[in-house]
């Protein structure tokens, strides 16, 4: 783990609506995540964890505050620049997998690299490598409907990994999976993190959060606790 900050959020405020009816989804959040960390962000629904995830993922902008992703300030970027940042810096994993329908696993994994302009041959090589890492080498030509939920989520992980992002951002990744698939996926996250990649998991499931090294709890748009997961960290080291 280095001291380089992958995520540096300062005074993040996200307000919906105006005047009396306005709601603060984020009410002054400060958050620093170093390269190589494995962080779980927990909280009940409405706590602002999804809003935070959208802001960290450059999918949404803040009402006020500053956000540096991998050392670059992106809070002032326009949508077009943000899409490039998303493609290069972030690997997304969603609850509902979000694979492109009627498109093979391989093509799905290749897609973000295609938008980055990576040449076809290299793209294919990296995609096959990523699919191998997630254990789907024998499913590369299958379309999403021909894969189980766990397999689809692993394709999504491969897609996120293939671009070699600064961070892996997972939003309730196990929400649609059975316990066996959940277990496999969390093992995969451990493995990815052990290889040095930053992993951030948004979840409301305690057993998912237990696997992370650092747990951040949110409530009403604020960070209420930020603890190192000693039990797990101890088990590993």
């Amino acid at each position: 783990m280095s001291d380089h900050l992958v995520i540096d959020v300062r005074g993040a405020v996200k307000k919906y609506g105006t005047g009396q009816a306005s709601i603060y989804a984020l009410d002054g959040v400060d958050l620093q995540i170093k390269s190589g960390e494995y962080v779980a962000i927990m909280g009940p629904s409405g706590s602002g964890k999804s809003t935070l995830m959208n802001i960290m993922g450059a999918l949404d902008n803040m009402t006020s505050g500053k956000y540096f992703l991998d050392g670059i300030e992106i809070s002032s970027m326009d949508e077009n620049a943000l899409s490039i940042v998303r493609g290069r810096k972030i690997g997304f994993i969603f609850q509902s997998f979000n694979l492109i329908p009627r498109t093979t696993a391989l093509a799905n994994v290749e897609l973000p690299m295609a938008y980055q302009g990576i040449k076809s041959a290299e793209r294919k090589m990296r995609a096959l490598k990523a699919l191998e890492v997630v254990g789907l080498s024998d499913r590369v030509d299958h379309e999403p409907t021909e894969l189980s939920g766990g397999q689809q989520q692993r394709v999504a992980v491969a897609r996120a990994l293939a671009t070699r992002p600064a961070l892996l951002l997972a939003d309730e990744p196990t929400g649609a999976l059975d316990s066996k698939s959940t277990h496999d996926l969390l093992d995969l996250f451990d493995q990815i993190n052990a290889a040095g990649r930053t992993v951030i998991v948004i979840t409301h499931e305690a057993d998912v959060a237990d696997r992370a090294k650092r747990v951040i709890r949110m409530r009403d748009g604020k960070v209420v606790s930020d603890t190192m997961n000693d039990r797990r960290a101890g088990a590993r080291t």
Partner: peptide, 10 residues
Amino acid sequence: GIRKAIGAPK
């Protein structure tokens, strides 16, 4: 939305 999330420019 997916395409944009994974880096497709406008």
